[in-house]
Amino acid sequence: MSAVCRIGVITFPGTLDDVDAARAVRRAGAQPVPLWHADDDLHGVDAVVVPGGFSYGDYLRAGAIAAHQPVLRAVLDAARRGTLVLGICNGFQILCEAGLLPGALVRNAGLHFVCRDQRLRVENPATAWTGRYAPGADIVVPLKSIEGRYVADASTLSELEGDGRVVFRYLDGNPNGAMHDIAGIASADGRVLGLMPHPEHAIDPLTGPSTDGLDLFHSAVDTVLGSVRG
């Protein structure tokens, strides 16, 4: 009997891309498990996606309120035990607010919401979420955000760069003023990943600019099933 990878997809009030994240999980051969913001356990999932949207209307700060909800406490506990976590857009903002990833996302330098098909370079294919990508792979994934500009202090940036934790970098011009053109970063163990662009919107040429995003989900399934087998 083949093992099934179960990936939780969290819905906060104001989460928007949960249906898309669940679709991508399914497309990668895993089973999506809906998680509600008020849940205080993760129902034994192997990995968690914190999807995009405007949780709690971005009130206070993007991600600030979601970071204090019961389900996020469960995510923090699970991450400490090595559970895979992916934060996309608002999910990335939430992981930063929760302290799971360093730095912060602030308003785009141009002050506009930016929706575009964004070229990215995969800087580190060795994380739990990027194993399927070739080193330096050039991919196209939609970016759609107004608080997408990654900022961190100098020592954090040099640590991220030095440890290969900058996982995705913007190509073709920086769309939001992010420091070091950073689009996505990982935790030190490579199991927690946050990025502003939306890989879940790039899984089908019919509805997205490419299928480049799907490998993110495949990589997680590989990691989970590999560790089960191993």
Binding site: D20, R23, H112, F113, V114, C115, K144, E200, D204
Partner: peptide, 14 residues
């Protein structure tokens, strides 16, 4: 104008 609008959300936009 239109790059300030999300056209992708819900994954059904063809």
């Amino acid at each position: 104008v239109t790059d300030q609008y999300d056209r992708y959300v819900r994954g059904g936009t063809v």
